[in-house]
């Protein structure tokens, strides 16, 4: 998690993780339900602006460009040209015709995907995993399941650290880890075994330390170091998110 300290970033960081989860969920599902793709792109623009405001603009744009553009093109190609729903043709490429219905469908799917992606990214960048899990356990999730979630969220960064450390060790024993793709792949492949193995032994050790500190005690409600508060801002945001979800249903029902 980057620490950028403008007031908006601080504000976003202090929002209850549950509120953030709810917003991500409502935005994504709402856009999927709403019949036209344009709402989705509008919201995507808002997310990008939010990203820029909290100092994550470059990363969000990179994510959208790196994942969104290829996926959108692929969807447009498949759905736009070959969807069975195509009735209204809008363009003729010679080898295939582009249909309006398929194009709209492709755009909607891609916008929903991108919203989930961007919103989740922003959430992860502004929330500590431990806070998310603390908020979830506070609202009634079993501590053990909470730990399971936390542990799996932490596996990737832990492995990344481990890979970096072993790479340093390899470098200082004469392995070139920079250079051509093949050279890097050659240095990386032998890493996978030990990294996975040591992650497993780490998990076992961690399990044991948790046990000797009373993690398995049944019946007592554990307290948490991490305090997650629900402010009035959270309530307002939650209501807005749910309103958005409901309003996206209206055109379908009418």
């Amino acid at each position: 998690m980057e620490t950028i300290d403008n007031s908006i970033a601080v504000l976003v960081r202090n929002i209850n993780p549950i509120t953030k989860l709810l917003i991500v969920f409502c935005l994504g599902i709402g856009c999927l339900i709403y019949p036209l793709p344009f709402v989705g792109y509008g919201i995507l623009c808002l997310l990008v602006i939010l990203g820029i405001l909290i100092g994550q603009g470059k990363q969000v744009l990179k994510l959208i460009a790196g994942f969104g553009i290829p996926v959108t093109l692929m969807l447009l190609f498949i759905q736009g040209l070959y969807s069975p729903k195509n009735i209204t043709m809008i363009a003729d490429f010679g080898f295939a015709q582009m249909g309006l219905e398929g194009t709209m469908y492709a755009l909607k799917i891609s916008s929903t995907l991108l919203i989930f992606l961007a919103a989740f990214y922003l959430m992860l960048q502004t929330t500590k995993n431990s806070e998310t899990v603390a908020a979830l356990t506070q609202s009634g999730l079993n501590t053990k399941i909470g730990y399971l979630i936390l542990a799996s969220l932490n596996v990737v960064p832990q492995m990344q650290r481990k890979v970096k450390v072993i790479q340093e060790a390899q470098e200082s024993r004469g392995v070139e880890i920079s250079g051509s793709f093949i050279q890097r792949a050659k240095a990386f492949l032998p890493l996978i075994g030990p990294v996975v193995l040591s992650s497993l032994t780490d998990a076992q050790e961690r399990g044991m330390t948790l046990e000797i500190r009373g993690f398995g005690i049944n019946g007592d409600k554990p307290t948490s170091y991490i305090k997650v508060e629900t402010t009035s801002l959270d309530i307002v945001l939650r209501i807005i998110a749910i309103c958005f979800l409901i309003s996206s249903l209206i055109p379908r029902l009418l």
Binding site: E168, E171, S172, G174, V175, E176, S178
Partner: peptide, 14 residues
């Protein structure tokens, strides 16, 4: 040079 090159001359024990 890279660390890999220097490792010929300077060994580092973690």
């Amino acid at each position: 040079h890279t660390t890999a090159y220097w490792s010929k001359y300077i060994g580092y024990v973690f």
